[in-house]
Amino acid sequence: MRPPSPSIPEKEFLFTALKQSLRLDGRQPLEQRQVELNFGPELGWVECAQGKTRVLAHVDAKMVKPPPERPFEGIISIHSEISPMASSEYESGRPSEEEVTITRMLDKVIRRSDTVDKESLCILAGQRVWHLRLTIHCLADSGNMLDCACLAGLVALKHFRRPEVEVIGEEVTVHLPTSRAPLPLSLHHTPYCFTFAFFPDTSIPPVLDPNLLEQRLSGGLISIALNAQRELCVVQKSGGVPLVPDDVLKIVDVAVNRAKELDALVESRLKEDWAGRKIEVI
């Protein structure tokens, strides 16, 4: 059962406010909600929050035999779970359209854009590779869960460290984290996802990081994933109200700047967390 759509006064109030470039939570149209990253006790355990939207991401690795067609590459699988816990909009059972969009976008942003160097996950060609498993749990949805999930997933990959492995002949030895320091994954780049909402009334400017109400009343979303090196990884505007081409390019420009800011924030938070951890090597 879907929650009722927003009431007419609510809708009119939001649109009038947005026309004056005011947002209900006091942000500028192109301002993101504050990103909060909390790291768990384990490596590769990250909780990411943007406003009231919260997502938990967790990475673990195990050794498997690679499929015969790709003997030199490790495997990454992404499991995303959107339960009714996040919002009453989601039902367990058949995935809704939003869920499909989120899952596919996660797959495109994290897997298809070649974030992780898969060949570095190979231990013994054709025999043993690392299988990374990224689990994403959506804890609460108050708009723009996609960006939050992508960020959580990426930071988890950056935070994660795998145990060191030594190969002598055909013998594989896994060193415990206590004996040798675990190694970070080798990542090619870090794409960040930004979602903009635009509205049926074209006099309303597009807003970055829409909250739940804005998202529900929007005429469509455009998601852009890119890294701090100005490389676009995914651009997705699947339908919705048509946009002027110049507006699309302006939105891309905004995303370029935001990606640099977010990259700086993520790096500093990771450094802080790393400094607070004591790794004992005996």
Binding site: R112, S113, V235, Q236, K237, G239, P242, P245, V248
Partner: peptide, 9 residues
């Protein structure tokens, strides 16, 4: 533009 999609870097 009604639709824009891109999936590669």
């Amino acid at each position: 533009v009604a639709l824009v999609t891109m999936e590669t870097r």
